[in-house]
Computed example of a mutant assay.
Amino acid sequence: MGQAIGGLFGGRDKVNDLADAVLDRHRLLDQFLERNGLLDAEITALPVDCSFRRYFRTERNGMHRIVMDAPPSLEDVEPFIKISVLLNRLGFSAPRVLATDVLNGFLLLDDFGDTTFTRALSEGYDEFALYCLANDVLSDLHCRPVDEIASSIPTYTDTKLLDEAVRFVDWYLVEGLQLPITSQARDDYLEAWQYCLPVVREAPDSLVLRDYHVDNLMVCDGIKGVAACGLLDFQDAVIGPMSYDLVSLLQDSRRDIHQNLVDDMLDRYFGAMGRTLDRAAYMRSYFVLGAQRALKVLGVFTRQSLKFGNHRHLAHIPRLWCHTLSNLSIPELTPVRNWIGRHVPEDKRLTPDTRNRSGINVPG
């Protein structure tokens, strides 16, 4: 068994290095807990998603806290600290940072509990009410002057958007489906997106949380207004088109949302934003970013499966294709639609069979 594991991970020495790294993180975690009077607390590991961060719940004398463990070589905790302070200053509910060890990548945070919007929906909470609350958070945020929130926050550049969009080619098509996409075809894909991206700027700029969907929203009982919605996973926030988070919410990669509810939420959003917002221009941006995001996530979910053995998100591939094709129907996305039609015909729009190919030796 030891020899087989050694071969998989590149030799016995590498296995030992990995074990040492894990033990070192445990030691550093214990030191962080001790400095914050939590070494004797009950510790529970929380589920992880598509990042290198780990989370633990501590309980001591009836007091609950969350510890974020973000290895500094893989994650930077400072953006989380900065955005948390900003969101709380603006009156939203983000976990406050109670203690830090930036050098080693540990944060002590407020604990918002376990009731994500996803769990609430599964337990019979009112879907319309939850989406109204999530929608109102965005309209409240988007009504703020961008100058009030833009200081030292990176911008969502076209370069970043292109880097994300090409994950569809590099991971979903080439690594996942193993389609023969040439370097010239890849360049043509990027050129098609470069032609389409100016449309996203037709929506005004605001703070973009970037992963705004029901898995990352929390029910905060006993709080009124937009603060009743707890916000998670915002460390990658940027200044960019405000349409991004709305399409992230209403074209959820992980759950189906009835079109009637989508229409109601769009009407509610534009009603709150007022007549000065050009709805037609905004919606063009919404659909272009919806296509960019869906294609990006096709690549992200494939990479998670291949590189880390995290296969559960592959179940969402058909839904992502539905979002993609719906968004690509607008004329502003004709170049990308034509590229998809040439290189990914309908019979190739599949869920990658990656389960026997996953492992740490996958490049990228």
Rank of each mutant, 00 (worst) to 15 (best):
M1E: 13
F9G: 02
R12H: 11
K14G: 02
K14A: 06
L18P: 10
D20A: 12
D24Y: 08
R27A: 13
R27Q: 14
L28T: 08
E34I: 14
D40N: 14
D40R: 11
V48F: 15
S51Y: 14
R60A: 15
G62I: 05
R65A: 14
R65N: 14
I66K: 04
V67W: 13
P72M: 06
P72I: 07
P72F: 08
P72Q: 13
E75S: 15
I81F: 03
L87M: 10
N88P: 13
N88D: 15
R89Y: 07
F92C: 10
F92N: 06
A94M: 07
V97G: 08
L98R: 11
T100Y: 07
N104K: 10
L107K: 15
L109A: 15
D111S: 15
T118Q: 06
R119S: 14
S122E: 11
H142D: 12
E148K: 05
T159Q: 06
T159K: 09
L162F: 12
F168Q: 10
W171E: 09
W171T: 08
L179G: 08
I181E: 06
S183M: 15
R186G: 00
Y189F: 14
L197R: 08
D205S: 05
R210F: 04
D211G: 11
Y212I: 12
N216C: 11
D221K: 11
K224G: 11
V226R: 02
L231M: 03
D236G: 12
G240D: 01
Y244N: 02
H258S: 06
H258D: 06
Q259A: 04
N260Q: 13
L266E: 02
D267E: 15
A272C: 07
R275Y: 01
D278F: 01
R279A: 04
A280W: 07
A294P: 01
Q304L: 15
L314N: 06
L328Y: 03
I330K: 04
T334V: 06
N338T: 09
N338C: 07
I340G: 04
P345H: 08
D353G: 05
R357D: 02
